[in-house]
């Protein structure tokens, strides 16, 4: 279980989130929704350990182990994966060798050899409908928004996480790409019992990947918790800014 116990988060001294508490189980999908600037992405960064997002109060646990003070790589090695909203480019860092290095970090027991791994990679890339030759380039270098998001999914598949945070994975994606990504994640939930936290403004992605829990946050606080019925409410009325 990924547990967030009453955390307050600030960025450069400015409070962003207050007393947030959430629990995400293995094999569960949770949607975290809210208007722009409500603090959704800040929560994702705080969970992943971005140094700019200071956890001033509260604690976070990964399968009962506290992770509040751990570095981003320590959290990643435990099995926490953040799919970034705007993945950065690292020119010159060859994707295939990068993914192979990730793979070697996470897979110790049943490791494929390099040739098998590359074949598997090509296969997965094809399923994600990544353009031919894209994997020969530098990481995200000159990639479109959609291609970057698919690269996040590919990295996710290679590192086999236990819990995934999808930070606005749907922004900038066309319907086809959205469907491909959502169904791939759904497969991970079903087959590998991965826990998924989907951060989004829109209900679109939830048409393909149903949420077991829905949490609405607003102005840095949890406003409402429930099931898919909350999504329906937002679709009809939008986020109610005043209440």
């Amino acid at each position: 279980m990924l547990q967030i116990k009453k955390i307050s988060v600030s960025v450069e001294g400015k409070p962003i989130l207050a007393d947030i508490g959430l629990e995400l189980n293995a094999g569960e999908v949770m949607a975290l929704m809210g208007p722009n600037g409500s603090g959704k992405s800040s929560l994702a960064y705080a969970l992943a350990g971005h140094p700019k997002y200071a956890v001033d109060k509260g604690k976070m646990f990964f399968d009962k182990k506290e992770i509040t003070e751990l570095t981003p790589n320590e959290r990643a090695m435990m099995g926490l994966f953040l799919a970034n909203q705007a993945p950065v480019a690292i020119p010159g860092l060859g994707i295939k060798s990068f993914l192979w290095q990730i793979y070697k970090k996470f897979e110790n027991e049943k490791r494929m050899d390099l040739v098998k791994f590359r074949n598997w990679l090509d296969d997965e890339a094809e399923k994600l409908q990544l353009k031919n030759g894209l994997l020969e380039r530098g990481l995200n270098d000159g990639f479109s928004g959609g291609e970057r998001k698919k690269m996040e999914v590919l990295q996710m598949l290679v590192s086999k996480p236990k819990y995934i945070i999808l930070d606005e994975i749907d922004s900038g994606l066309d319907v086809d790409a959205l469907k491909i990504i959502a169904l791939r994640v759904k497969k991970m939930v079903k087959e590998d019992k991965v826990g998924v936290l989907i951060i989004t403004h829109y209900s679109r992605i939830l048409n393909y990947l149903k949420a077991d829990k829905v949490v609405i946050i607003e102005k840095g606080k949890v406003k409402e918790m429930g099931g898919m019925e909350l999504v329906k409410k937002i679709e009809d009325k939008g986020f109610e800014e005043k209440k």
Binding site: H50, P72, R75
Partner: peptide, 19 residues
């Protein structure tokens, strides 16, 4: 970004530099 993929800080730096 690179650290959140499991790499140590010096490994991440080396990746950016080698790139």
């Amino acid at each position: 970004y690179l650290m959140s993929r499991g790499f140590e800080e010096h490994e991440a730096e080396a990746m950016v530099v080698n790139g």
